[in-house]
Write a protein that binds this DNA or RNA. Structure first.
Lengths: 130, 130
DNA sequence: ATTTGTTTACGAAGATATTCGTATATTCAT
DNA sequence: ATGAATATACGAATATCTTCGTAAACAAAT
């Protein structure tokens, strides 16, 4: 179970991961109070989800005190890459640049962000010339 | 039902849409024979899915002859944008450029594609300067 | 006309994801 | 110690997605 590949989180699981990535290790109640702001589900629903995620290996928990502390067991970056790769594959027919054009076209990006992307492109091209 | 917003296709539905986007209007059997190559499911499974998609408004069909002809009722571009927007929102905290950097970093893109992206960036910056 | 093959229609089983009610345990204040 | 508040554990109801078995409709060939 330890070396297994990371499995794709569901929608609800992703919401919980986002809270934990942002806030760091937290109790069920803390997570639930954040989620409540944008959706309505009972406390035990959040609890159950986090228990399942723990079984799946998506979360770690410290059960030494009565109130358990949960933390993300998968990194945000890995998860982003996993989901992005899948989308490129299944939605954009494997073409990352097609996805990039769509993404840039439909969202305002700050000048700094655009500049960063351009620098990055230059680096890639420099590498390719070798 | 006609003016309703496009709803998100499921995984299986997306597979069918991809075939129809590529091949154009097709019969269930034609779609099924493509799908068979990469997954194994019975014919009636494909049929049922396409019937459901028709109910949902994802597919149109011509039932004038015995063998019905199905066609995508949603465009590839709209669907890509819809799914991409959702991913930016839920996975990349609303930052399109963060997604772009990830996408460029983990996939080989051809020189022409990279050039196209750079030109696109320049256009965006030119517009912003105004 | 009967058989054979292909199609759609329908219903329901199976799988997975989401939700919550209820029971039990623990802590803390009184 | 007792009661109130809060936690976890567990099981099950609900919803959604996927799959397929079976029946009925239709067409073509014999």
């Amino acid at each position: 179970m330890s070396a297994g590949k990371q499995l794709k989180p569901t929608e609800s699981e992703l919401e919980i991961l986002r809270v934990l990535w942002e806030k760091g290790p937290s109790t069920v109640r803390e997570v639930h109070e954040i989620l409540e702001q944008s959706k309505d589900a009972g406390y035990t629903t959040t609890l159950k989800l986090m228990q399942i995620m723990h079984e799946k290996g998506l979360l770690e928990r410290d059960a030494s005190s009565k109130t358990h502390i949960y933390a993300a067991a998968v990194s945000q970056e890995n998860t982003q890459r996993q989901l992005l790769d899948k989308m490129i594959d299944t939605v954009f027919n494997g073409s990352a640049s097609q996805l990039v054009l769509q993404a840039l076209g439909n969202h305002k990006s700050s000048k700094e962000e655009l500049e960063k992307i351009k620098q990055y492109l230059n680096e890639i091209e420099k590498q390719q010339r070798k």
